[in-house]
């Protein structure tokens, strides 16, 4: 049986065959995940932009609380 499975010129690899069998027919689901990723990335970018935009003001407000009055 083993000899039928392996040939010298075209080596069978059960691990790669398993990978191929798992992937087959999953194209639609992969596309759905891609759409989810883009939506999530958009949300992260939006939050990131907000933080970047308002970080200086936030740091200034925090700084007022942290620096003692005598040093102002």
């Amino acid at each position: 049986m083993k000899k039928n499975f392996i040939t010298m010129d075209n080596r069978y690899n059960g691990f790669k065959e398993l990978e191929r069998s798992i992937i087959d027919g999953k194209g639609d689901q992969f596309s759905q995940v891609k759409n989810n990723l883009q939506a999530n990335k958009g949300s992260f970018d939006f939050i990131g932009n907000l933080v970047t935009l308002y970080l200086p003001q936030v740091m200034e407000v925090i700084g007022r609380f942290l620096v003692p009055d005598s040093k102002k």
Binding site: F5, I6, Y12, G14, F15, E17, L18, S21
Partner: peptide
């Protein structure tokens, strides 16, 4: 190992 059938693998 490589020769194991995919369903057995």
């Amino acid at each position: 190992l490589l020769s194991v059938k995919v369903e057995h693998m």
